[in-house]
Design a protein around this nucleic acid. Structure first.
Length: 681
DNA sequence: GCTTTACTAGTTTTT
DNA sequence: CTAGTAAAGC
């Protein structure tokens, strides 16, 4: 690869992009509309900085997903392999690096365990039960709600009271108890060296507040780039400000109209605060869209028109094409999906690659009818989002063994392991836990006998502890995982009817583990990154022209693009999702979600809705999404009412009875005995 | 008293 | 498909 010179940069970038690329000192805010080449800016800025003699080790790129980081650095590395050395990743993975390095500063011990949201929810449930919060009859938040209340409080930098007032006013009477649990939870985690998602960020923030650590970290990372700044929360923004406090060399890229993660604490106003924090901020807007044809941008601009506070920008393009986006109405979700599948088939016959077609929707379950319809036509597809590999019960089981081995204080995992055994439920598991975690690790068999009366169960327990002893002796992550899977397989077979499928997953798990030498890193990666999509991994490896159609939630479609995009179920209650309807801010976020979805399309855009609801039975009729009917969106769409109403010719009645129940029974029995049936069984 | 089983209801979005 | 619950079983 030849080196790039300034002339090359000029050739490949438009003036605004070039300015963003060449402004490397001082604070810079790039407001980049959808499809305006912000990835390109980051890619070329990396190259430019390195051309200017900046060491790649001094550059930090924080992105929203690891995939995004990999993509941008990967492209840059093709021009200049030195770019591989740039530090890039998500906030969480960066946090882990720093925490690992400086854990002593904040008093964390070795063998840190990272816990995911369901572990965290389980722990909170346990603490709530212990504190007696569940005893009186009035309602107390369920474990997932509990978790999200505490998490919101951290991510939005608000007190429990504030979170409750805004989102859960009916739980306000429980404020004191919740505060108590918040403290207990902190205590619980610290005592066991556990860290959850929120702690990763908080601890990083704490570390960066320490002058010595801050100096060390920021002298390492002298140039900082942050992607998707509109989706950072307050803690993350603080981290960025802290990192750049010394040198101000910080570029934030974002698009306030694409902020769609407020449920996770994202605070799009960070985009407006950035110039206040760094008063000498230079602001560059990118408005030239390279992705979509003008009719699609017209729809996008019209959708976002209603948004109140935004950096005003209007997308424009010179991409050729005049296909007007369509809006189609259908009777129900099935006819809608069948139409989508048929249309996809049509595209394929015209030579459009399946890999360049995307079907987008608000919620995972909306994809089911589409999956059905595509399978019927034998069109291959891959589903993004939804249940993840790590979240499946069998993977969690195996992980629990590993976690206990890594950190014996990890009670949640220990309980999970113990409850696999027959005859041990939550109660017994708790007691056994107390006994074996007694100080010194020495427990007496008599104590165990008192708790577990059944000798065969005790024998099983003995086998489990045998497994852990053997794990302690084996070297290498892969060998350990292999032992665990071997031990676990009988349980797997008993627990799940569909165990062969799950066994394949375990094989994949084993494979992944083989590339790790550090067990801790392996465990961390499982909570901080999304591992290969659920099973059938081999799909990914396929060649460009064999890639399947993508089905994705709008959230996971962020940053991606397709030639043809279908957005389905544009129904009030699905896009704005019904939960969002009572809050104006949430509705605005739903609007931005539609904006994101629309701007994924390059040439063809098909919107659709179905009329019949599934809520509560028959007679709920859906209204077209307000974002489409309200604004000036409608007139930019080609409307199509041709829904699939005909269900084939109707059969004529024939009421003469030819057989009674007994007759039918004999017919069946005869059929079972016939040679034809035998061949089939 | 604790575990297991059988059933029901209801599913946002993700690091 | 699974989390939560009620009732049955040990």
């Amino acid at each position: 690869m030849h080196k790039l010179r300034i002339e090359d940069f000029k050739k490949r970038l438009n003036p605004s992009q070039l300015e963003a690329v060449m402004t490397i000192d001082g604070p810079l805010l790039v407001v980049a509309g959808a499809g305006t080449g912000k990835t390109r800016v980051i890619e070329y800025r990396c190259l430019y900085m390195i051309e200017q003699g900046i060491a790649p080790e001094n550059i930090l790129l924080l992105t929203f997903t690891r995939k995004a980081a990999r993509e941008m650095l990967g492209r840059a590395s093709m021009h200049d392999p030195r770019c591989k050395k740039i530090e890039g990743g998500t906030y969480h993975s960066f946090a882990y690096r720093v925490i690992k390095k400086y854990k002593n500063v904040i008093g964390l011990g070795d063998h840190i365990s990272f816990i995911d949201e369901s572990d965290s929810a389980d722990a909170l449930h346990l603490l709530a039960a212990r504190a007696g919060c569940l005893e009186d009859k009035t309602r107390f938040p369920k474990k997932d709600t509990l978790r999200s209340i505490l998490s919101m409080s951290i991510n939005r930098n608000q007190s429990i009271g504030e979170v409750l007032t805004k989102d859960y006013p009916h739980f306000l009477p429980k404020e004191a108890q919740l505060q108590d649990i918040q403290k207990k939870y902190a205590e619980y985690k610290i005592a066991r060296n556990l860290i959850d998602y929120d702690d990763m960020l908080i601890y990083l923030k704490f570390l960066l507040e320490d002058p010595e650590v801050n100096k060390k970290v920021s002298s390492q990372f002298k140039y900082i780039m942050v992607d998707e700044f509109q989706d950072t929360n307050r803690v993350q923004a603080d981290i960025v400000y802290s990192l750049a406090r010394g040198h101000h060399n910080c570029m934030a890229v974002g698009d306030d109209t694409q902020s769609i993660y407020s449920f996770r604490g994202a605070y799009y106003k960070n985009m407006f605060d950035f110039p206040k924090v760094f008063s000498d901020t230079k602001i560059i807007k990118l408005e030239y869209n390279y992705r979509s044809i003008q009719p699609i941008l017209d729809v996008a601009n019209a959708v976002i028109e209603g948004e109140k506070r935004k950096y005003s920008k209007v997308l424009f393009t010179t991409c050729q094409g005049s296909d007007k986006p369509t809006l189609s109405y259908f009777k129900d979700a099935f006819s809608e999906s069948e139409w989508v599948a048929a249309k996809i088939k049509e595209y394929r016959d015209q030579g459009v690659l399946l890999g360049s077609i995307g079907v987008l929707y608000r919620s995972n379950f909306l994809s089911l009818p589409v999956q059905l319809a595509l399978s019927k036509l034998n069109i291959p597809f891959a589903v993004y989002g939804g249940m993840k590999f790590v979240e499946t019960a069998h993977i969690k089981d195996v992980l629990a063994f590993l976690k206990v081995h890594h950190n014996p204080k990890d009670e949640i995992s220990l309980a999970r392991v113990l409850m696999l055994l027959d005859g041990i439920g939550p109660r017994t598991a708790e007691k056994v836990k107390e006994i074996i975690s007694a100080p010194g690790g020495a427990y007496r068999d008599e104590d165990l006998k008192g708790v577990v009366k059944n000798p065969s169960v005790r024998k099983e327990l003995e086998r489990v502890s045998g497994l852990f002893r053997s794990l302690a002796q084996s070297e290498g992550t892969e060998a350990k995982v292999r032992k665990i899977i071997h031990f676990y397989t009988p349980f797997l077979k008993k627990k799940f009817d569909d165990y062969p499928l799950r066994q394949d997953d375990l094989k994949a798990f084993l494979e992944i583990s083989s590339s790790y030498t550090s067990l801790e890193q392996f465990l961390v990666d499982f909570v901080t990154i999304e591992p290969p999509e659920r099973s059938l991994v081999s799909m990914e490896a396929k060649k460009e022209d064999e890639r399947p159609v993508t089905l994705s939630t709008i959230h996971s479609a962020k940053g991606l693009e397709w030639e043809a995009v279908f957005i389905i179920a544009l129904v009030d209650g699905c896009l704005p999702v019904s939960y969002a309807l009572d809050d104006e801010e949430s509705i605005e976020e739903e609007r931005r979600l539609l904006y994101v979805a629309v701007t994924r399309a390059k040439r063809h855009l098909h919107l659709s809705m179905h009329n019949e609801g599934r809520q509560g039975g028959m007679s709920s009729f859906n209204r077209l999404s307000r974002f489409i009917s309200d604004s000036g969106v409608m007139e930019r769409l080609e409307q199509d009412y041709a829904w699939f109403e005909d269900e084939g010719p109707e059969l004529e009645d024939l009421t003469t009875q030819k057989m009674d129940k007994v007759g039918l029974y004999h017919k069946l029995v005869d059929y079972f005995d016939s040679p034809y049936a035998k061949d089939n069984f």
